[in-house]
Amino acid sequence: MDVKDLKTYFYLDDQKVARAVDDVDLTVNAGETVALVGESGSGKSITSLSIMQLINKPGKIVDGTISLLGQNLLNLSDKQMTKVRGNDVAMIFQEPMTALNPVYTIGNQISEVLRKHKKMNKKQARRRAIELLKMVGFPRAEDTFDEYPHQLSGGMRQRAMIAIAISCEPKLLIADEPTTALDVTIQAQIIDLMNEMKEKLDMALLLITHDLGVVAEYADRVLVMYGGQIVEEAPKKRLFKESKHPYTSGLMESLPSIYKEEERLGTIRGTVPPAHSFPKGCRFSSRCPHAMDQCFESNPDLIQLDHEHSVRCYLYTDE
């Protein structure tokens, strides 16, 4: 999947425009796990919802292309798009407690996807749904099929969500902070499960997270997002070893290290500025420890350092 120049803006009541996603380029290749990292409000979730075209008013995808296997999804009609969602691209959300419809059984909610996209009849869908439930680790899958979401724990509900998401063997799975709301011990299980499913079904995985531990463990490539833009892109190992952007470095410093004893972890001062009033220059300039005059003047472009590493910062321009 290839996302180019994606712009999703929110038109707020008071004439302000929140540029929640501004010129994002993003590529996820088959079988690859790409992590999209950034703190709250950086535009990660809006990026993923834009890919699914699930942006609600007052938000709007203003510009860009989202191509999946050569087809631009933004050119599809609403009806055609419903054939892509859940079928070619599937998504898992952050909050498993509320992401399932409380009045229908787990089985019903898996079957309806199969019946819609794979045109299965009730019996086939039931058989396949039970298979899927077994795959994602429900020991009593037949019983679980007839259970309601409130009878399952958070971790189990997230497993059910994964079963729904992989039911049609999508080419791309988007996971929007799938473990944030879960217990630490469950988090690892869920991520492991997603990774296992990814391998098994040869999907591409776009993992949206702010957990750098998860990134270190599973991602192939990392994109760091700040203020609605990609500020750094690199393969995982290089990002952790030689991060370039001051923001990325700040994130790294906020991680505890097992090699040195630290009194206090590093922090990044301040918070992400609201998307309707970014500073005039570089969007990170107001919080950047290395900000120069130039940084307050204009926003830098994404600079290619080499074929796999790029960064949006004036510290790395040649001039």
């Binding site: 699914m52 699930l54 609403d78 009806k79 419903t82 054939k83 892509v84 969602r85 859940g86 079928n87 599937a90 998504m91 959300f93 909050e95 509320t98 992401a99 399932l100 419809n101 409380p102 009045v103 229908y104 309806e112 996807v113 819609k116 996209h117 969500m161 729904i164």
Partner: peptide, 29 residues
């Protein structure tokens, strides 16, 4: 505006299905 409606849409359910199956039953409670 709830999460499970977003899930239903993300599953590729049609507008009709989202309204009559997923929304109405919950709204009628």
């Amino acid at each position: 505006g709830s999460d499970y409606i977003r899930t239903a849409k993300a599953k590729g359910m049609s507008d009709r299905n989202v309204l009559y199956k997923h929304t109405l039953r919950n709204a009628l409670i």
